[in-house]
Computed example of a mutant assay.
Amino acid sequence: MTSKETTAFSRTGLVAGMSAMGVVVLVSNIAVNFPINDWLTWGALIYPIAFLVTDLMNRIFGPAFARKVVYAGFALGVGLSLWFADQRIALASGTAFLTAQLLDIWVFDRLRRQSWWKAPLASSLLSSALDTALFFSLAFYATGLPWVTWAIGDYGAKLAMAAVLLVPFRAFIALLPQRFARDGAMADSSQ
């Protein structure tokens, strides 16, 4: 791939990552208002895709690039959520999202050179725990809603989704040229 193609690939990746992140945050913030049962909301099934986006950006482009996607996704997602979702949920989501996604990037980067599945799984499990604790306590404390059971159900769903999302993570990485699929090679080649 030429330098021009690499720059175009990076630009496309950045726009795709930022857009995906903003949409995932917005849809999750709306879906969290719709319980499936006393233990789970629809947001629990959608939000883990944000960790997939972050992990793909981190694997392909490196941690600095992934942080750009998170910051832009944060701004876009919170901005849209303030418009389309409850303000308390939007602010709780933004706080939890930014903190958890930055933890995800840090953990992923520390494990990136181990087996392909360890970095996305471990980073998602740890950051999902932080995200769940922050979001549900900030969004629903003192509302009278069953937020503790929702948080437990949400984290259980995030654990299951972290395992399930390993399949598309591996499939997407397998589609990339080998030099871009390993250890954030795009970040190394563009700096």
Rank of each mutant, 00 (worst) to 15 (best):
K4E: 15
T7R: 11
T7S: 14
T7E: 15
T7V: 14
F9N: 00
S10D: 02
S10H: 03
T12W: 07
T12F: 02
L14D: 04
M18E: 05
M18Y: 04
S19C: 10
M21V: 11
V23I: 11
V24K: 04
L26H: 02
S28V: 03
A31L: 02
N33Y: 05
N33G: 15
N33E: 07
F34S: 00
F34P: 00
F34A: 00
F34I: 00
P35W: 01
L40S: 09
G43W: 00
G43Q: 01
A44M: 00
L45T: 09
I46W: 09
Y47D: 02
Y47L: 12
P48W: 13
I49E: 02
F51S: 09
D55H: 08
L56C: 06
L56I: 10
M57Q: 06
N58H: 12
F61H: 13
A64L: 15
A64T: 15
A64R: 14
R67W: 08
V70C: 10
Y71L: 15
Y71R: 12
A72L: 03
G73V: 08
G73C: 10
F74V: 10
G77V: 13
G77I: 12
V78N: 06
L82K: 10
W83I: 11
F84Y: 15
A85V: 03
A85K: 04
L91T: 11
L91M: 14
A92F: 07
S93I: 12
G94K: 01
T95R: 08
T95H: 06
A96Q: 07
A96H: 08
L98K: 10
T99D: 03
Q101A: 13
D104Q: 15
I105H: 04
W106G: 02
F108E: 09
R113I: 02
R113W: 02
R113V: 03
Q114W: 15
S115A: 12
W116S: 01
K118M: 04
K118F: 02
S123R: 05
S123W: 11
S124F: 04
L125W: 06
L126M: 13
S127P: 02
L134D: 07
F135G: 03
F135R: 11
F136N: 02
Y141M: 13
Y141A: 13
G144E: 11
G144Q: 09
G144H: 06
L145H: 06
V148Y: 04
T149M: 13
T149K: 15
W150D: 11
W150Q: 05
G153C: 13
G153P: 06
G156Q: 06
G156N: 08
L159K: 12
M161K: 05
A163G: 11
A163N: 03
L165A: 01
L166Y: 01
V167K: 00
F169P: 10
F169Q: 08
F169K: 09
R170K: 13
A171G: 01
F172A: 01
F172N: 01
I173D: 00
A174L: 09
A174F: 05
L176A: 05
P177K: 14
P177S: 13
Q178H: 01
F180A: 14
A181W: 11
D183F: 08
A185S: 09
A187I: 10
D188G: 04
S190I: 03
Q191F: 15
Q191T: 15
